[in-house]
């Protein structure tokens, strides 16, 4: 083979790898962002403790694996009802009291919850960095010069499935319609006989169940430690703003865009630039398309 053709092949492999990395990283971001966008979209509450629920999901998988050798994919089925319950509990104890308060109060409350949860984890489980290595975390798949990890593929597939399921739920079920109605006009919904408190409770619980599941799914890929949630949560806000509040499919596309900016930016300009790029994008979207890239103009003020 002549050198020029080899070079061409090498370049194709590089871009194929970057493409695969983008899609798989985007899947992880979507998994984390989808619960956040739901809570954000329906309740209009910015949940700053979202990352800590992710961390709790990671610890759930870690302890289940190291104490009882339970595979994270099995733990997934336990974690969904577990985190749904945790979501209900958090809503009843914390969120219900501030749901009609000003945004500042809500921000203080969720930031407080976030710091409290981090420190509980620190006291109970220490600051050690823990890792779990189920068999699928070391399975490498190689296709056409690209390589990726089986756990990442599974996380991606479940992210897509979860996004579509939530999208369908919101669009075609009665409960979904009730939730959308509450988001669009809280007062009118109340007048129509909708129990908005129940809607919020359900929304918050579904959102937390999603992020708990996300924590379980990313646990084979990343170290588990008390502030692990901070690693992802800023990104999740960028994704949610990009995709439009409460827009499931938007969150999926937003995740892929953020991942593409991160992967290509890191490859071309260096990793140090990645946050510059996606926060410039974040600000640009807020300034020029405040409803998100895929949202309708004016949608951002709905229900506020």
């Amino acid at each position: 083979m002549d050198p020029a053709r080899r070079l061409g092949r090498a370049q194709i492999d590089v871009f194929a790898q970057l493409g695969v990395s983008t899609v798989l990283l985007g899947g992880i971001y979507a998994l984390i962002a989808v619960g956040l966008t739901l809570i954000f979209g329906i309740m209009r509450v910015v949940n700053f403790a979202h990352g800590e629920f992710l961390m709790l999901g990671m610890y759930t998988a870690f302890w289940a694996y190291s104490l009882w050798s339970l595979d994270p994919y099995f733990v997934l089925f336990i974690s969904i009802p577990l985190f749904f319950g945790l979501g209900v509990l958090t809503y009843v104890l914390v969120m219900r009291g501030v749901i009609h308060a000003s945004h500042n109060v809500q921000i203080f409350t969720t930031v407080g919850l976030s710091i409290a949860l981090q420190n509980v984890a620190l006291v109970v489980w220490t600051g050690d960095f823990r890792t779990l290595r189920p068999w699928h975390a070391s399975v490498v798949i190689r296709v056409f010069g690209t390589a990726f990890n089986l756990s990442q593929v599974v996380a991606f597939v479940i992210a897509v499935a979860l996004t579509l399921a939530l999208f369908a739920f919101m669009k075609w079920t009665h409960t979904g319609r009730v939730m959308r109605a509450t988001a669009q006009d809280h007062d009118a919904a109340t007048l129509m006989g909708i129990d908005t408190d129940r809607v919020y409770r359900l929304t918050f619980a579904i959102g937390i169940a999603c992020v708990g599941a996300a924590g379980v799914l990313v646990s084979p890929l990343y170290a588990v430690y008390p502030t692990a949630g901070l690693q992802f949560v800023l990104l999740a806000y960028v994704v949610v703003v990009l995709g439009g509040l409460g827009d499931m499919v938007g969150a999926m596309l937003g995740s892929l865009i953020v991942a593409a900016v991160e992967v290509l930016g890191s490859y071309v300009f260096g990793v140090a630039w990645k946050e510059v790029f996606y926060f410039v994008l974040f600000i640009a979207v807020l300034v020029f398309r405040p409803a998100g890239l895929f949202g309708q103009r004016g949608a951002e003020t709905l229900g506020v």
């Binding site: 590089v14 790898q17 970057l18 990395s21 990283l25 992880i28 990343y222 901070l230 690693q231 992802f232 800023l234 990104l235 991160e262 992967v263 290509l264 890191s266 490859y267 260096g270 990793v271 140090a272 990645k274 946050e275």
Partner: peptide, 16 residues
């Protein structure tokens, strides 16, 4: 190359 350990989620671009 420098990166922030608090936000690095993927090394594949740099490894590539």
């Amino acid at each position: 190359e420098y990166y922030s350990f608090t936000s690095i989620n993927d090394f594949t671009p740099i490894i590539t």
